[in-house]
Each structure stands twice: as C-alpha cells, then as structure tokens.
C-alpha cells in the first residue's frame, strides 16, 4: 500500500515536471518568436489587431461600467467611514490605492480571463482538433509565430489599454458619486487626487497589466494548443486555462506588489 501511494505521488510529480518542462519549452519558443514578430508582422498584424479589437475594444463598455461602479462604491463606503471623522482627504488615498494600484489591473485581468482567455483556448483547441495547426505547419508557418504571438501581444496591449480606461472610469465614477456627498468641481477633485497619486503607482499598475496580459495570453494559448485529438478536450483545457490564469495572476500580483513595496 505505501509503495502504491509513493508510486502515485512519484507519477504525479513526474507528470507535473513533464508538464512544466513542456510549458517552459512552449514559453521559450513563444518568447523567441516574439523577438521575430517584426519579420512576420505583415502576416500577424491582422491577427494582432483583431485580438486587440476583440479583447480590448469590445470589453471597453463592460470595463468602464464596472470601474465607475467600483469607484462610486469606494467613495460611498469611504465617506461613510471617514467623512464623520473629518478625514475626507483619505478618500483620495483610498481611491489611488484601491483603483490605481490594485483593482484596475486585477479586475481587468479577471475580465479578460473570463472573456478572452476562454475564447483563445477554445479557438486554438478547435483548430488543433480540426488539424488547422498541422496544415499551417505543413506549409511552413510556425503556429506559435502566427497564432500564439499575435494573441499574446494582443492580450497584453488590450490589458494595458483597458487598465488605463478602467483607472480613468473608476476615478470619474468616484468623482460623480462624491459630488452627491460634498459637491466638488472636477478640477479640484483631480487636483487633490494628483497630489496623492505618485508616478510609481501608475508604473506599478501598468507593470502588473503587462505581466498579467502576458501570463493570461500565454496560458490560454498553451492550454488551447495542448488539445490533442478530441473536441471533448477543448472545454477541459479551457477550464484549466481559466484556473491557471487566475492562480498565476494572483501570485504575480503578490510578487509585483512586494517588489514595489520593497522599492
């Protein structure tokens, strides 16, 4: 019995190690192809643009709504807690900390995982099942350079852009709601906000968005390309893609926050 347990654990570890090695190979190849992207830009630019359109532009409304609502909620809750103590200036600190530093990149990543990560995995999985990948390979086109790299770049660009929109919409939503509690002009609001906003906050937020975009795009593409034969594998790989993306986004968020905290 103990031997079987040990064997099982060993098999799992070997499987994990093989999976990690496989992912690292894929990741290495993707990185390599990214540097070669400019050479194939004529072919891959359309894919990149469509990816940005699908992942970024089409999610703009949803992102803006969520951001404005969260900004408003933060102001309401913050005002209820701090307004009575005469610490209204802290609202700006909370807005900067919550929206700019943390929520913008994290929530955008979650939405992109849900919308685009699943779509990329499903699309690439179906392409594998339909032998479209093999067809590309047969005519000498690298599926990673043609399919993966533009998608990863597209997700990164969309996430970076959406983070900017999320931040702006969140702060505007905060101002709009705060206007009901203590009427303050937009100029004055942003003047006070800019006093609390440091360049490092913006830099932290956009570093996260780029890293998250890269992680989400790579994991979604990897899981999609990992589909072997059957269509039943596609949803399984999609779920794995979502779970792994969420896990890595959280881990990377902690790591980046720690790095910026130390700096």
């Amino acid at each position: 019995m103990p031997a079987r347990i040990a064997e099982s654990i060993g098999d799992n570890l070997l499987e994990k190690a093989a999976g990690t090695r496989e992912f690292l190979q894929f990741f290495g190849e993707a990185i390599r192809q990214m540097f070669l992207f400019s050479r194939q830009s004529q072919v891959a630019t359309l894919v990149l643009m469509r990816q940005i359109l699908f992942t970024g532009f089409e999610a703009l409304t949803l992102i803006s709504l969520i951001a404005a609502a969260i900004g408003g909620i933060i102001i309401i809750e913050g005002h209820l807690m701090l307004g009575d103590f005469g610490s209204g200036q802290l609202l700006y600190v909370i807005l900067v900390t919550v929206i700019v530093r943390e929520l913008s990149s994290l929530l955008v990543a979650f939405i992109i995982i849900a919308r685009s990560g699943t779509a990329i995995s499903t699309e690439l999985g179906n392409m594998v099942v339909n032998h479209e990948i093999e067809a590309l390979q047969s005519i000498g086109i690298s599926p990673i350079s043609y399919l993966v790299v533009p998608r990863v770049f597209g997700v990164v660009a969309a996430m970076f852009t959406l983070t900017i929109y999320f931040t702006v919409a969140g702060l505007l939503g905060g101002w709009a709601v705060s206007y009901f509690f203590f009427p303050i002009g937009l100029e004055d609001f942003f003047f006070r906000l800019l006093n609390e906003l440091a360049v490092v906050d913006i830099f932290s937020s956009f570093t996260k968005s780029i890293v998250f975009g890269f992680a989400v795009g790579t994991i979604a593409c990897y899981q999609g390309m990992k589909v072997a034969f059957a269509t039943t594998e596609v949803p399984q790989r999609t779920i794995k893609s979502v779970v792994q993306s969420l896990t890595w986004v959280i881990i990377l968020d902690i790591l980046i926050t720690m790095v910026f905290y130390v700096l």
Partner: peptide
C-alpha cells in the same frame, strides 16, 4: 484599434505630465 489605443496613451501621458 488605433483610436482605442491612442486615446488611452494620450490619457496616460497627460496624467504623467500633470503629476
């Protein structure tokens, strides 16, 4: 996509200048 990204970059650069 161009407008989508340029507006975002404009907002970013504007914010950095203001800060």
């Amino acid at each position: 996509v161009g407008v989508f990204m340029l507006v975002a970059l404009g907002l970013l650069i504007g914010s950095l200048i203001l800060i």
